[in-house]
């Protein structure tokens, strides 16, 4: 049966603020709002430890703990493992071929000035796993 886990990230990290400088695996520097799908894919290819996994959004619901949080359920990788993540509604995820998306893009844009679209069921987000588990 698929496993399930819940991860609660800390409060909104500073690197999502528009203008933040991000270093790719090849050393290139880019602003967070300028990142493209290829940047993540190429960085993961260079990385010896990390690989990109696709995480499909299966469900989005409000959190029981706070109206500021949402629970996003993903189906991760080829094994379609079920992973639930509790995040702030403005927490951005990177959607393949689309860019930054969050449960509440208006708040993301308001708080971070990061251009953002609405995260929806069926969206395929970029996530990471370890290349070699053993």
């Amino acid at each position: 049966p698929p496993s399930s886990s819940t991860v609660v990230p800390p409060s909104l990290p500073p690197y999502f603020i528009k203008g933040s400088i991000i270093q790719l695996a090849d050393g290139e520097l880019k602003r967070v709002e300028d990142l493209k799908t290829e940047d993540f894919i190429q960085s993961a290819e260079i990385s010896s430890e990390l690989k990109i996994d696709s995480s499909t959004v299966e469900r989005i619901e409000g959190s029981h703990t706070s109206p500021n949080f949402a629970v996003v359920q993903f189906s991760v990788g080829e094994h379609r493992a079920q992973v639930s993540v509790e995040v702030l509604v403005e927490y951005p995820f990177f959607v393949f071929g689309q860019g930054w998306s969050s449960c509440c893009p208006d708040r993301t844009t308001q708080l971070l000035e990061l251009p953002c679209t609405k995260l929806s069921v069926g969206d395929v987000c970029i996530s990471l796993t370890l290349k070699n588990l053993r």
Binding site: P2, S3, S5, V7, P9, P13, P14, Y15, F16, S20, I21, I22, Q23, L24, A25, L29, V32, L35, D39, F40, S43, S47, L50, I52, D53, S55, F74, V76, G77, H79, A81, Q82, V83, V85, F93, F94, C125, I126, S127, L128, T129, L130, L133
Partner: peptide, 25 residues
């Protein structure tokens, strides 16, 4: 005279959620 402040640089992988589901095999 204002000293230039160093701009923080964040690694690319910090922006991506690390989702490591338990492997069944």
């Amino acid at each position: 005279n204002v000293e230039p402040r160093s701009v923080p640089v964040f690694p690319w992988h910090s922006l991506v959620p690390f989702l490591a589901p338990t492997q069944s095999d």
